[in-house]
């Protein structure tokens, strides 16, 4: 979990992002209230929440780094490791599970060379794909559903998830984005 010194030194929050957070602070009676939003903003920018990011937020919001880390480890949507360019989050709550979300997960894992028996966030060695199970995505009538980055994909089947993968594999741009569906 600890970055090397060089990574800590490289950590810098762009001015636009910092002023966005500064602006958020003005909306609340307590600076602390901004913690979650600041974490989301940093994760969106850096792809994950680093120790340096936690310490930066703590200082900015007059918190102890421990208090920020408590939140980061409480919420599963924060990642302490860099996420892949394509991030699959497959719902495994009741409706989706009954409609076969496990098969979708297995299909993805098999095609990406990941261990389908591991029920934890996994990233391919090339760092391009991250796959994980998540809880209800609030679209239970169209299960199984998944999130590919920030986009919803409903009524998934093994075929449709393979198609999604093909689209991703063809995308060689460097930015991280949704598939535009």
């Amino acid at each position: 979990m600890h970055e090397t010194d060089s990574m800590v030194m490289e950590f810098s929050v762009p001015n636009t992002l910092e002023s966005e957070i500064d602006e958020l602070i003005t909306h609340y009676p307590e600076k602390r209230s901004v913690t979650l939003m600041a974490l989301h903003a940093l994760q969106a920018h850096f792809g994950f929440v680093s120790d340096a990011g936690i310490e930066w937020i703590a200082q900015k919001l007059d918190q102890t780094p421990l208090a920020v880390l408590e939140l980061v480890t409480f919420y599963p949507m924060f990642s302490r490791e860099p996420l892949g360019k394509f991030h699959f989050r497959i719902c495994r709550t009741l409706s989706c599970a009954l409609n076969g979300s496990e098969k979708i997960y297995w299909a993805l894992c098999e095609q990406l060379g990941l261990d389908k028996n591991v029920h934890k966030r996994q990233t391919t060695p090339d760092g391009r794909f991250t796959v994980e199970f998540v809880e209800c995505l609030a679209c239970c009538n169209k299960g199984p559903v998944l999130f590919l980055n920030e986009d919803f994909h409903e009524n998934m089947t093994e075929e449709s998830v393979s198609k999604l993968l093909t689209i991703c594999n063809g995308d060689n741009s460097s930015e991280r984005k949704g598939t535009g569906k």
Binding site: M1, H2, P65, L66, L69, E70, F74, P76
Partner: peptide
């Protein structure tokens, strides 16, 4: 000295200090 807190969630909760 607020050195201790609770990390993780639910059954996985652990008392901890800030790593390092």
């Amino acid at each position: 000295n607020p050195a201790l807190g609770i990390l993780n969630r639910g059954a996985l909760n652990t008392i901890s200090n800030y790593p390092g």
